[in-house]
């Protein structure tokens, strides 16, 4: 039955010579719809179904083709991402058969290309690709991190540019999550790791130290770095404004703070010189905590991420970075927030 369901995809019934892909397009779409349900099935049955689908080289090839085709409907391409990601992440833990079927690594490289090329793909497809990559990174290990980080083109720079300049929040969130997973899983002490951590701290510095909403991007760049790198896209010169902490969503903010904490937490092999202006960093964090100290799940998540980040930095610098008086003020507001959120916090700990 599964092979019959997949037949329109396996046989690649799409007419690639026409813009609408011909009359069988609808049938291929429906076939993919059922395949996506099957590939998300639970338990042993789900594992067997995914094994059967991933063993079908022709089906995988058609799905990859749909993913890279600009003429295909967005819904079909999203579905192709979902099915291939589910197969890829599943076979990491179960059989590895996807690797042999034809395009395990190619699929991940394709996702990286889609996610980082904002002039070629729509932001919604890029958002899907980013979420898929984030999922793959989270569940994978050093091999996936290596694959992503060493994909042709300057992936690290592209990811940090998405985090800094992208308007689509799903993409920015995915970028923060991918960078965090790369920091956690990519443990080779080489130029990629050095570049990764340096680039992340630079972006964090731009967002967390300077985003007071009164400067355009150009001012912020010069305030933070003292220099403007020639190879960066010149979006800032066009008055692009770095998003302020107060307007950022709780999820994105939590991801950013977690990312910063992870950089310091996984830095045993690298000397991370302070690249943040301690005073404005602490003041911005304090203001952010004050605004988010009401007892809600989102606020609690942001404050915990901030707390974890501060602990990682205190350990890394042995307190050296936080000599300023501003630190006392930050701890005071965090302490006050922790008391306001105590009931919520305990109930969440118990329920988990």
């Amino acid at each position: 039955l599964v092979s019959k369901i997949m037949a329109p995809v396996t046989s690649d019934l799409l007419d690639h010579t026409t813009d609408d892909h011909g009359t069988w397009c609808e049938v291929v779409g429906r076939s993919m719809e059922v395949m996506s349900h099957l590939s998300g099935a639970q338990g042993e049955t789900g594992a067997k179904l995914r094994h059967e689908i991933s063993s079908c080289t022709e089906a995988i090839r058609t799905l990859s083709r749909i993913l890279g085709c600009n003429k295909c409907k967005e819904e079909m391409r999203q579905r192709a991402i979902w099915i291939l990601t589910r197969l890829y992440t599943d076979t990491i833990g179960i059989s590895g058969s996807f690797e042999y079927s034809c395009c395990g690594e190619d699929f991940v490289r394709m996702l990286v290309n889609i996610f980082t090329q904002d002039n070629e793909y729509s932001s919604s497809i890029r958002g899907y690709a980013g979420e898929a990559l984030s999922n793959i990174c989270f569940l994978g290990g050093i091999s996936d991190a290596t694959l992503i980080i060493q994909t042709s083109g300057d992936v690290i720079n592209s990811l940090t540019q998405v985090l800094l300049h992208e308007e689509n929040e799903t993409c920015r969130q995915a970028s923060a999550e991918i960078l965090e997973c790369l920091c956690t899983h990519y443990t080779k002490d080489d130029e990629y790791l050095h570049k990764l951590k340096k680039a992340i701290l630079k972006v964090i510095g731009k967002i967390l130290c300077c985003g007071d909403g009164t400067h355009n991007g150009e001012d912020i760049e010069s305030q933070c770095d003292g220099t403007q790198e020639n190879n960066e896209p010149n979006k800032d010169a066009q008055g692009f404004q770095v998003e302020t902490l107060s307007t950022m969503s709780s999820n994105l903010l939590s991801s950013l703070l977690c990312l910063c904490g992870t950089v310091y937490n996984t830095s045993s092999v690298i000397d991370l010189r302070p690249q943040l202006d301690a005073s404005s960093f602490l003041n911005n964090l304090r203001d952010m905590v004050v605004k988010r100290s009401g007892p809600t799940v989102e606020n609690l998540s942001v404050c915990k991420a901030a707390g974890n980040m501060v602990i990682s930095m205190l350990k890394y610098y042995s307190g050296g970075f936080f000599k300023e008086d501003n630190f006392g003020s930050l701890i005071e507001v965090l302490s006050s927030a922790s008391k306001k959120m105590l009931d919520l916090d305990y109930s969440m700990v118990c329920s988990s």
């Binding site: 707390g307 205190l314 965090l334």
Partner: peptide, 17 residues
């Protein structure tokens, strides 16, 4: 971990430094 315990650890680390 609770936020309260994170704040406590941060205070201790800062005091030790």
């Amino acid at each position: 971990r609770t936020l309260l315990s994170l704040v406590r650890e941060a205070k201790e680390l800062h005091a030790m430094a």
